[in-house]
């Protein structure tokens, strides 16, 4: 009996040691991981770029642990000010109010332009219209113009195609073209760039808008204010429906944050930008 007891005691002892070792091991790895952790939050427009870049970056640097979240530009900037995230993605520059709030909390936001976002307005290839002004485009989408003949085209009803209101593409269009006015309620909704393009391809009287990456010979991109959408005109800033995309950091980026932003701006990072349908900087 006694013999068994001691043996049991020994077994328990081993167990305690094992558990202690495990705890120390996980504790250490946690501390270790924490030093290499990067939290990115913000704009859903920038999200696909950040996500894909993070994936590739983590493959190259297995010790880095990057978590990328959406939530919208406002959420990202608020997160940066509150110290919840290290990098805030934003599809707009920071508002004055946000900068004041950041300064009050001792945060010094530093913008990094990582890509350009351009939105092309597309119609069926058979449509004789070649260009529109921003005002005409706005009238089409708010419902003031509903026949192509009013714009010098065929006598045909305009089939207006829009995006789901939560998407980044809609947000950009909403700000730069609609000036925050309401889209006509009978506009058709498609849930992705690809489905907008494929609907336009099959619908003669349709008009829609997609990211530059979704242009093809099967749809016709319109000139806006006389400027055709292309990487060049977006980069020069002459194409009116375009905007820079930002990543904000607190002060000059250091450590992992710096490495990551450098990666996004590198040749490889910019190739990802292009793959995701945005305009690379170089």
């Amino acid at each position: 009996m006694k013999c068994i007891k001691t043996e049991k005691g020994g077994f328990q002892m081993k167990r305690v040691i094992l558990i202690c070792a495990l705890i120390t091991f996980f504790g250490l790895s946690f501390v270790h991981a924490k030093s290499m952790r990067l939290v990115i939050q913000g704009s859903t427009t920038v999200l696909p770029i950040a996500q894909k870049c993070a994936e590739v970056f983590m493959q190259k640097h297995p010790q880095a642990d990057i978590s990328v979240r959406g939530g919208g530009s406002g959420t990202g900037i608020a997160g940066l000010i509150d110290g919840i995230c290290d990098i805030a993605n934003s599809s707009r520059s920071m508002k004055k109010k946000e900068i004041i709030k950041a300064k009050e909390k001792g945060v010094n936001p530093e913008p990094h332009v990582i890509a350009m976002d351009g939105i092309a307005v597309i119609v069926h290839p058979s449509n004789p219209i070649n260009g529109l002004t921003l005002a005409q485009l706005k009238d089409i989408y708010t419902g003031k113009i509903s026949n192509w003949s009013e714009l010098g085209g065929r006598n045909q009803k305009i089939v207006v195609i829009s995006r789901d209101v939560a998407s980044g593409t809609f947000e950009c269009f909403h700000k730069l073209v609609l000036k925050k006015q309401r889209v006509r309620p009978d506009a058709l909704l498609q849930a992705s760039n690809a489905s907008v393009a494929s609907t336009i391809k099959r619908t003669k009287g349709a008009i829609g808008y997609v990211g530059l990456g979704y242009l093809s010979s099967e749809v016709k991109a319109l000139k806006i204010e006389g400027v055709a959408p292309s990487e060049e005109t977006v980069l020069k800033g002459t194409y009116p429906i375009s905007r820079p995309l930002f990543m904000y950091t607190n002060g000059k980026p250091k450590g992992l944050a710096k490495d990551f932003i450098d990666f996004v701006l590198s040749k490889e990072g910019q190739r990802i930008v292009k793959e995701q349908g945005f305009v690379p900087l170089k």
Partner: peptide, 8 residues
């Protein structure tokens, strides 16, 4: 389905 994915 269309709006839940990207809403805050």
């Amino acid at each position: 389905a269309a709006e839940m994915g990207e809403t805050v």
